[in-house]
């Protein structure tokens, strides 16, 4: 659906200053995936999105969208985008604006009304259709931003910090809408630094820092790589850790599972066997810190440097 291969991008700063935003960035978003693109502020997430949308030009490397090289604007007919900071014209009403953006997406006159009705119903904008956007709160703008992104039922939905400014109820509704989009067959590409959202919604992930993709893969594989925890009672095995309630626990990985269970001492019994839960946030922080500690972000071209 999206593939970045060895992509580098440099911003021109003031005078001779050059800022390397992406360095040999490589990742691939499979079709039908819900892909979390994780990174701290300034990591390069928005730069990737802007290049993808044609807002930034002059990258090096190969980028493919729907299997084709960037450049054909008609590819964007299949793409919906929710920007990080959704600003809109102040003097257009919600209904007018939706029609405007729907027509730019290529929706014909005959389908306009149905498309607007559908997204207004999904995001509870029906009563607000005649209201000007200047009177909208941040959360209401965010709802409108999602509505305009999905109005043409795109194959790929790019969401840049989609939950920003939403209350808990609307966060839940947004997740429901995204789930519906996914069931319709859309691929979701999230750029976010809120990791709990990624755990809730994504099945694939990539971690980017200083313009370098540190790792990527299936979220299930990452969470499934956590060690197993066996809690038992009775005679504890060697290296067991005693718990306050008199039970004990040991940790081992999947490869050791059979041997560990077979070697339990007589008189012991299994209370439960569960997988240790990885907190994605902790994992992300440790991964990025390890990258920094290794000095790779300083040694490579990913450094934001002055030339």
């Amino acid at each position: 659906m999206i593939s970045f291969s060895q992509v580098s991008f440099t911003y021109r700063g003031d005078w001779l200053q050059r800022v390397h935003a992406l360095s040999q960035t490589t990742f691939a978003v499979p079709s039908g995936a819900s892909y979390g693109f994780l990174g701290a502020n300034g990591a390069g997430k928005s730069t990737c999105i802007k290049i993808l949308l044609g807002l930034l030009q002059g990258h090096r490397g190969d980028i493919r969208l729907f299997g084709k090289p960037l450049g054909d604007v008609h590819l964007r007919r299949r793409l919906g985008y929710l920007p990080e900071q959704p600003f809109f014209y102040d003097n257009l009403a919600v209904g007018e604006y939706l029609v405007y953006l729907a027509r730019l997406s290529g929706i014909g006159h005959g389908e306009l009304q149905a498309a607007c009705d559908r997204v207004c119903q999904l995001l509870d904008l029906g009563d607000l259709r005649k209201r000007k956007l200047r009177s909208f709160s941040k959360g209401m703008r965010q709802r409108f931003a999602l509505a305009q992104a999905i109005i043409h039922q795109p194959d790929l939905l790019i969401l840049d910090e989609p939950f920003s400014g939403l209350d808990p109820l609307w966060r839940a509704r947004f997740k429901e809408v995204m789930d519906l989009e996914r069931k319709r067959g859309a691929t979701l590409f999230f750029s976010t630094h809120i990791l709990s959202d990624v755990e809730d919604l994504c099945d694939h992930y990539a971690v980017i820092d200083h313009g370098v993709v540190l790792e990527q893969g299936r979220l299930g594989d990452l969470l499934g790589s956590a060690p197993l925890v066996l809690v038992g009672s009775g005679t504890p095995p060697d290296q067991a850790r005693m718990l306050a309630d008199g039970t004990w626990s040991i940790e081992f990985n999947d490869a050791e599972r059979a041997s560990r269970l077979a070697s339990l001492p007589a008189g012991s019994s299994i209370v439960r066997l569960e997988r240790h839960r990885i907190a994605l946030e902790d994992y992300f922080v440790s991964r990025v810190r390890a990258f920094h500690a290794a000095g790779k972000h300083l040694a490579g071209a990913s450094l934001r440097e002055r030339q």
Partner: peptide
């Protein structure tokens, strides 16, 4: 500056 054109130029137009 207000990035209102992001939602426009992300659509199929030159």
């Amino acid at each position: 500056q207000q990035q209102t054109l992001y939602t426009i130029l992300s659509r199929p137009l030159e």
